Amino acid sequence: MRRTAPTLALCLALLGPAGCTAADTVAPPAPAGLTAQAGSATTVHVMWDAAKPSDGVTGYQVFQAGRPVRELPAGKTMTDVTGLTPQTGYAFTVRAEDAAGNLSPQTPVATVTTPAARSEDRTAPTAPATTTGSATGPRAARMSWSAATDDTDVTAYDVYQGGVRIHTAGPGESGTVLTGLQPDTVYTFTVRARDGADNSSPDGPPVDVTTPPASGQGPGTAPAEFAAAVSPGAVTLTWTPPDTGRETSEYQLYVNERPTTVIQFGAGAVPAGRAEHRLTVTEPAGTVWAVKLRARLPDGNWGAFSAERRIVLVA
């Protein structure tokens, strides 16, 4: 049991083990590592470290100047706050919540000032000229890059892996530590510069980083309990998302060993438990499919495949 209420001993003395259940009344710790970076004149990218599994966190609340602006599931540790005012200072905090509704203290304040708006700015920054990277452990890597230039100002650097943005750093930063990686994996990272009008540079030079193996590779990355139900003109897929440390909103579907589509769940629709997706099919009855899927991981890679299911389409 993660926490025990102070009244548990008295409850046990009066009612016995069958007559009482320990209530969870202890709040989780405040999230660590909060940062806020201006992505443009009207957006700020807020990030923090994921809670430990033992903390029992089920979600996060993001505050701007003490006012709640976002509620996120436990798997999501970054968000873009939009609709802000150019050349304005903002203060952000985050607190965690557990399944019993206990709220952590708020984090120390992260402050940021949005740059001036450049409504006519259509010129992207130059790409960072150099990029370097090295693994710092089985699940982390350190990246560094050279400064980009822009006709106005560079406001952010975005790190990409597999075509997916996985991290945002501030304009004055020339490096960062990436976490949530998989052991014994080769990654290819690139960096793009961004300005206040949200113009992004081309990719800087790619850098390959190989994480070392680790004992106990951590949670599996394959979707579990994958099932496919056939009905006339349709196939309904269901599965349990892998435990990636963040919400999993993108899956790649293979049919007969070929990638056929990418299933994406929009904001607010990401499945927290059992996931479901319905396919409309036009192939003739009797067509045999072998279907499987894999999830996009927080590091930008695709995870391991689910079990494969063979189905026969019906009219």
Rank of each mutant, 00 (worst) to 15 (best):
S134K: 14
F63I: 03
C20K: 02
Q61F: 02
G83I: 15
G133E: 12
L8T: 08
L10C: 03
A23P: 03
L8R: 04
L34K: 02
V46A: 11
Y90L: 14
P128Q: 12
A13M: 10
P68N: 14
L34D: 07
T85F: 07
L15E: 08
A110S: 13
A91V: 13
L103Y: 06
P31L: 02
A13D: 12
L103P: 03
G19N: 08
G33H: 08
L8Q: 14
S119R: 12
G33F: 12
A124G: 07
L72P: 00
D49I: 00
D49R: 11
Q61A: 08
S40M: 05
A65Q: 09
R95W: 05
T131A: 12
V46L: 10
D121L: 13
A117T: 06
A74M: 02
T25H: 09
T43S: 15
R70I: 00
T77N: 03
P28I: 04
A99K: 10
P53V: 06
G83L: 08
S134P: 00
P53L: 07
Q37T: 14
A91L: 07
L12P: 11
V26D: 11
A91G: 07
T113I: 09
G133Y: 13
G56L: 09
D98E: 01
G89Y: 11
A18W: 10
